[in-house]
Amino acid sequence: MINEIKNACLKAFESGEVGYIIGWQATRFADKTTPLFMRSAEDVEKLVWNKYCVNSTAKYALEDKYPEKKIGIILRGCDSRAVARMISDKQLKRENLYLIGVVCDGKEDPICATCSHKTPVIYDVLIGQPTTEEISPERFAEVEKIAAMTPDERYNYWAVQYDKCIRCYACRNVCPACNCVECYADQYRTGWQGKAHNRAENQVYGLTRAYHVGDRCIECGQCERVCPMNLPIMSQTRKMLKDINDLFGPTECGLTIEEAPVLGEYDLNDREEFM
């Protein structure tokens, strides 16, 4: 598999349209890889493809919105949904990207157990045999576990989680759905998000972010992977996705590049609860 990816990268460089390609490279630790930015053919040698390629490669393209040449990205299933997410959020242009899709074999990341899209949804060239996809029954297991608790137990469960949160904003910086130019938390002069590190401010941050990305979350699991304090961040957004499924019909985000967010549109005969 790795040689096919390397050949795809070399072909991309020969075409002359691609400025750099984002992939993975080894680190001094056997169980960790780090994103690699290949600018020329020699860099392609450093590319690796193993079960430790857990970093998402897609969001780095956001930092280079007006590239002279195309940005090459090697996409696993979830990365391709991240790219689709950012394109439908009008943050990336499809013509600026050269997408090398690779059918994923599942990585060393708990989210891969419930992955429903090992085959990339969007690509210029595909490597590997497309697999049949189906939504994992375990998708909302975590949400149901919390729903089974009493309200006070639920609150205390989340209170302990938000006591741990150290507000490093790694979950925001890695999330492809969190792609605002200036995040509300950075405009702290306006008082939306306090700077204090206490449970209350962490709750406001946690809930606001869950609500901002809830209807566009592609369930890539990066937020839970990067959280240094291991908070169950996904179960907040998956709660919203579960409600969206129940109320507005089955949805999976980031599958096409013209997908309007659920809260960005409406339907005249939505369920009526507030009469």
Partner: peptide, 16 residues
């Protein structure tokens, strides 16, 4: 440039 390219710009390293 290439040492900081993969950084996400979060504050994880400073807070631990």
């Amino acid at each position: 440039d290439d040492v900081t390219k993969a950084c996400l710009g979060c504050a994880c390293c400073t807070y631990v």
